[in-house]
Each structure stands twice: as C-alpha cells, then as structure tokens.
Design a protein around this nucleic acid. Structure first.
Lengths: 250, 250
DNA sequence: CTAACCTAATTGGTCATGCCAATTCAAGTT
DNA sequence: AACTTGAATTGGCATGACCAATTAGGTTAG
C-alpha cells in the first residue's frame, strides 16, 4: 500500500469524500483546477483520478459542466458496459435485426403467441402517451415476436437492444422527446405487423416491421432537428442520409 | 458519431485490439510514446485511456515496465452473461443480422475498408485449417463489414455474436467439428462477399452473406447428424427444417 | 565460466502552460 | 416574459520537460 501512484491516491481521497457524505450523489464536485490546488498536485493527476473513477462508474464527467457524483446503483465494478451510441444507431440496428426476426417469426408463430400479441396492443391502446405501462406493452410486443423465432440467441439480443434503449442516457433522452406523438402511430403499426404475422407472410412481416422502425427513425431525426440549431442541422441532414439508407431497402 | 472524448475512443480501440487477439493476456502492449504516435494523439490521452482500462481491470500498469493485458478472470468484467444456446441458433442469428449488415455496408463501405477485407482473405488463405490465424482473419473479415456500417450498435452486436462463438463451450465444440473441411469453402465465399461489396450492390451483398451462413448452417447440421445416433437424427431433421427456413428466404 | 554489479536506455509518473470547445449563466435586447 | 448574446467557467488535448522505477547489456570480480 506504500507505493501508490499519485492519481490513484487522489482517486481514493475523492472517493473518501464522496463516501463520507461530503459530496452526495448528484452534486457536482470542485473543478479540476481547484482540486489541483487543494491536493497540491497538477491538473493532470486530478483528471486521471477522475477518469479512473468514471471508469468504475462512481462519477460522471460532463464536458464544459463538471464532474458529478453518481449514485452507486449496481455499479461497483461489475457494471455491464454499454458503448456510447446514438438513438439513431440503435434504431437502425433494431430495424435490421427485428425486421428479420419478424420475417422468421411469421413462418413459425403459434396462435397462442398471436393472442398474446393482441393483448399487448390492447394494453398499449389503454395506456396513454409515455406511461410505464405503454412502454412495457411495447417491450412485450417486440419481445414476443423474437420469442416466436424459437431462437435463444435472438431473444438474448432483443433483450440487449432493449436495455440500450432504457439504460443509455443519450438514447433515453431522444426517445422521450418523440414518445408522446409517437404513441399515436405505434398502435396502428403494431396492428399492421400483427396482421402480417397472422397471414404467415414473411415478406409482409418484414416490410411492416421495417416501416415501423423507418417511421420511428424519421421521428427521431425530426425531434433531433427540432431541438437543434442551424449548425446542428447540417449534421442531422447527413444523419438522415446515413440512417435512412437502411430504411429504403424494403 | 456518438461524440466521445478522445481518451475514451482510444481506450475502445485498445480494447478492440485486445479482444481481437492482437494482444493476448499477459503480453505487454506498446509504450505510451509509441501508441501516441500510432494513434496520432498526445501521450496524455494514451495515459488516460490506459488508466481507464486499468480501472475496469482489463490491463495492469507496471511502473517503469509497461502495461500488460490482464486476463478477464473475474466474472465482473462488465460483460453480460451469455445464455446457453446451440451453435445452430447462433448461426441463424448471425445469418439474419450479418446479412443485413452486409447489405447496409455495401452502400457505404470505403475503398480502404475493402482493402483491409482483401488482407483478411489473403491471411485466411495462408493459414491452414483451424489455425488461430485463420480464425483471427475470419473474425476480422466479419467485424470489418459491420464496422463499415458506421454504426456502433452494430459493432457491439457483432462483438457479442463472436464472443458466443468463442466462449460458449457447446458452440465451440460444434464449430470445431466442421472447421477443417469448412475452411475450404470459406475463403471462396468470403471472396464472393467481397466482390459484392466492391460492386456496392446491397442485394448482392445480402445474398452472398446469406449463402455463406446458409452453407455453414448446413455443414453444422451435417456434422451434428454425423455424430448422432438414430434417435438424435429425428431431432436433427426437425432442426434442419427449423433453421434452414431462414436460409431459404434469399 | 558464473555471478554480482554497474551503467544506460526504456517506460511510466508528474508537472507546467497554453489553447480549444462545450456549457453556463447573467446581462442585455426584443 | 422570452430570446439573444457574450464573457466566465469547465473539461479536453497538445507540448515539452524532468523524475523515478525497471530492464537490458556489458563489465568486472570471483
């Protein structure tokens, strides 16, 4: 314990302060320059210490803002690490994957599973806007379809994709922005998909699912543009070009 | 996209190199100065990246010596637990997902990425049978294609798929059984896929990739049947029916 | 020849400074 | 009250220099 690198020592001291309640979860701790003076070390050491704390999920660093204490949800060291990604990327991946799952499911779905799908649509219709119930019904709908493929790997990945949608902040944010007006279309589109599955037509199932995500993708891009300034608009339009390519192939 | 800080990006690239087998556990990776030159960033960034990797237990930094790749002994490496699944299920999922990735990649792959793909084919041709080099080249080939989609979620998805292929015992076993005679077809099929990507034809890319996995799926089923007794044969034939459905849709 | 030793190159650790980009926030404008 | 603007704050990154631990290679003593 004697030989410890400086940044490590500083990291422990910061942790000490956090755990002692000096800085409670959500609060912002002093700037790098200030801490550098306080600990009598260089700014680099402070940065390295904070970066190591960020890596184990104890703090969150926001550029231009500050570093904030994170509540230790499940975090000690075993936190599943999801890579940073945009809502667009995630949705594109869902489009690719779930459309194929739908096509596959159409050939082997059971009547019982179809009945369950109808239930989720009913529940979604009852739930208004972005309620928790509505989101749950949405998840159940998509999950049931992958389950109908009778492939554990498909289920596993579906579950992972959903985790990203609910656990990655940047993604949650964008999804929440469109959720309200989105729920209107969603029910109808789910009905379309269900009809396709009922007809046991793979092509049609794939098509309706692609359309479902294609529209969502557009809604996300619109919402993204809406809250963006002119400068951002240029990037968004290139986003549109990139991510809509996948939607145009149906 | 997903604007992350530089050190974070570098950390991911280093992780990539580790996971891809370029640096196996126990080995020492290049010095900070060397990496700084290679990634064209300052030494500070390299240090920060390595410190973050040390914090999550992926590498060990020894002062005056170097930084060494740590084996992911603990279950708390942050990676999600893999559910038990058959090689058939995994391959079917790969077929669905990677075929779509190939189609998407065809529309946006760069000449540079195509050149890298050619390299992997050459390496695979040089490596015989089920050598580590051959497997490495195989992984690189498929990974490069998903990377060409410029979608982090796709890359993440792909990485998980490959992990299952190499970390789940039951899957490894079946794959190893077909690997020898399989490598013969594999090179040719990779060439076909590459040609499709070169032509920038999404449909053709999707088709060649589907065929690649369809054949692999058949080989797996054959191998499975071969070492099965009569009783198992019945299940295999129903397996064949189930898993080949996805291959027939191209 | 072996083993202990010593030196020089290598490698990570730290510092100091400067500048950039993102974010904040308050003063000023409409 | 809502919006705009711009200065101040904050983290991100580059340079360049120096220190300390480690390692490798050659030298010397046995």
């Amino acid at each position: 314990m004697a030989e410890q690198r400086l940044y490590n020592k500083v990291a422990n001291e910061i942790l000490e302060m956090i755990d002692s309640g000096q800085y409670s979860p959500g609060t912002r701790l002093p700037g790098e320059r200030e801490l550098a003076t306080k600990f009598n070390v260089s700014r680099v050491v402070i940065r390295e210490a904070e970066i190591s704390l960020e890596a184990i999920g104890r703090v969150e660093i926001k550029v231009g803002s500050g570093v904030y204490v994170k509540q230790p949800e499940q975090a000690l060291t075993g936190k599943p690490v999801l890579p940073p990604m945009s809502a667009f990327e995630l949705t594109q991946t869902r489009l690719l994957f779930e459309s194929e799952c739908a096509a596959l499911a159409a050939t082997m779905i059971t009547d019982e599973q179809i009945a369950k799908l109808e239930d989720t649509i009913i529940k979604m219709g009852e739930a208004s806007g972005q309620s928790a119930d509505g989101e749950q019904a949405d998840r159940d709908f998509h999950h049931l379809i992958t389950k109908a493929t009778r492939n554990v790997a498909n289920e596993f990945f579906m579950e992972n994709l959903w985790r990203m949608r609910t656990e990655i902040d940047s993604v949650k944010k964008v999804y929440a922005a469109v959720c309200v007006e989105d729920s209107a279309h969603r029910v109808k589109e789910h009905v379309d998909i269900l009809e396709a599955l009922k007809s046991r037509d793979p092509e049609r199932a794939r098509k309706t699912m692609r359309e479902h995500f294609a529209r969502l993708l557009e809604a996300l891009l619109d919402a993204s543009e809406q809250q963006a300034i002119e400068e951002a608009k240029r990037r968004s339009s290139s986003n549109r070009e990139q991510f809509l390519k996948s939607a145009l192939q149906n």
